[in-house]
Design a protein around this nucleic acid. Structure first.
Length: 439
RNA sequence: GCGGAUGUAGCUCAGUAGGUUAGAGCGCUGGAUUGUGGCUCCGGAGGCCGUGGGUUCGAGACCCAUCAUUCGCCCCA
């Protein structure tokens, strides 16, 4: 007979306790930051009707990259590949009654049928943060400032990442008025801008030239050179500096600086697909030479909930993924030493299990998380098991200890050992825990 | 969907030109050590050499296919 394979499903990951601790650390940090800005958690169902995804542009993506099936009642459904449509459905359903601005977040898993590669899995976890009902730039500022705060909450320094910002409104003006491209050409040019970092300057120039009408190529290339060469907005061609889009971007940068965001830069080649974003878009980039890529991004999408037949709502959101976040933290050595939730392991000596169980219960009543060795095996085996589980404290319980009500507490990291009465035992363990998690 | 790289013990890998019972380090496990892990010493388990086919007297090595992992392209809501 052949045995079952222990291999997990392609692109999906098992989280053993040591992996899950990392994931929990990321989730906890996210939650702490967004809740500090007054965002509240929600969740939508894992399955959605096929329609709400098909309604968005890019049906090809929906058909090829979603897990979709027909349920037993003949309804076409998809496993959510992202949060936004489900969230839009939720908000649209209570369009009139929600309190605005509505600040909402969720941490959930998603599935996309794609070829897995570095930083991309078929099942992945994301934070989604959105603010509904703010049409001014202050909404964009809040989300981007929060993105910055997320990075800082992981102890990232400003040298480790940059925040690239662009404006879809500005791009549209650039394509139509400055480069004089029609809609088809604009789309091609936007795609090309998006890929700019993946090619040599020569390749970029040649491909750009191919997009222009032949009689406009020369002028067009000159204009492109000016655009791409602009490191700040001030270096942009004067005709563009007069547009309202650019003034908005300038206001955004000023406000970000006031909020303590110092590493935001303007980047006219930043695109972020071209589905539903309508104005400001941004991306947090890793500056580490070996992980030079986008960590996450977001932007403004003002039209989405009108798909559900209700009044549109201005919306800004972002969606950091756990996979990229983890890679960033590893690349910059920012992952702290993470311990299990178990504080202590009771090593049972001789025939004292009953007494040790009583002690365990008393400790649990004091909110100490304690595991007890119930195997009756030799002492060194018990210790090894606890050390392997990375449990910080050992408590030795034998005849002597039970009689005297003084227990030997051992700190596994440095082998320090003391005899304590119950109160001191609890205090020592609890104190250590507070220090350890509050690094 | 397209292209490259890689699959030998739990992990990292070695395996010469195709030649007998497939190796190392680490890890695991038992003991030295019946109230103390890491160090040391002695023992032990663990391999359909990813899978299927082919070439050959003979394949872990060569060929084909396939699956998986991984990097990149496309795409990235």
């Amino acid at each position: 007979m052949s045995y079952l394979s222990t291999q997990n499903y392609k692109g999906a990951r098992d989280y053993y306790p040591e992996d899950k601790r990392v994931q929990n650390y990321i989730f906890t940090t996210w939650r702490k930051v967004v809740e500090s800005y007054g965002y509240e958690e929600y969740i939508t169902p894992l399955l959605e009707s096929y329609d709400i995804y098909a309604a968005k542009t890019g049906q090809e993506i929906v058909n090829e990259q979603t897990y979709s099936f027909t349920d037993r009642g003949g309804r076409p459904v998809v496993v959510r590949p992202e949060m936004t449509p489900g969230l839009a459905r939720m908000v649209a359903a209570r369009r009139q009654e929600l309190a605005y601005p509505a600040r909402l977040y969720s941490i959930a898993n998603y599935m996309r049928y794609e070829r897995p590669q570095k930083g991309r899995e078929r099942e992945f976890w994301q934070l989604n943060v959105d603010i509904f009902g703010v049409s001014t730039i202050d909404g964009d500022v809040e989300i981007i400032a929060m993105a910055d705060q997320l990075m800082k909450a992981f102890r990232a320094s400003e040298k480790m990442y940059t925040i690239k910002i662009n404006s879809r409104k500005l791009i549209n003006a650039v394509m139509a008025d400055y480069l004089e491209l029609d809609i088809m050409q604009s789309q091609l040019m936007i795609k090309l801008f998006d890929r700019k970092d993946k090619m040599t300057p020569e390749e970029f120039r040649d491909q750009a030239a191919a997009i222009f009408d032949t009689d406009k190529t020369e002028v067009g290339l000159k204009h492109i050179a000016k655009l791409v060469g602009a490191k700040t907005m001030q270096e942009l061609p004067p005709s563009l500096l007069e547009t309202s889009a650019i003034k908005e971007v300038q206001a955004l940068f000023t406000l970000l600086r006031e909020r303590g965001v110092h590493n935001a830069i303007f980047d006219i080649t930043l695109m972020r697909g071209f589905d539903y974003y309508t104005d400001i878009v941004f991306e947090v980039f890793d500056t580490h030479p070996e992980n030079n890529r986008a960590i996450f991004g977001g932007g403004r999408y003002d039209g989405l909930i009108s798909l559900f037949g209700v009044e549109p709502l201005p919306t800004v959101g972002m969606a950091p993924g756990a996979t990229m976040m983890e890679e960033f933290l590893r690349a910059h050595k920012l992952l702290p030493e993470l311990r299990p939730a178990t504080d202590a392991y009771i090593v049972v000596l001789g025939d004292t299990l009953a007494g040790a169980q009583k002690l365990a219960k008393r400790l649990r009543d004091e909110e100490v998380n304690v595991a007890i060795d119930i195997t009756g095996r030799k002492l060194d085996k018990q210790i090894k098991a606890a050390v392997k589980m990375k449990i910080p404290f050992l408590i030795f319980v034998g005849e002597e200890e039970l009689k005297a009500e003084r227990y030997t507490l051992k700190y596994t990291e440095n082998s320090a050992e003391h005899k304590f009465g119950f109160e001191r035992l609890v205090a020592t363990i609890t104190d250590h825990r507070v220090k350890d998690t509050d690094i």
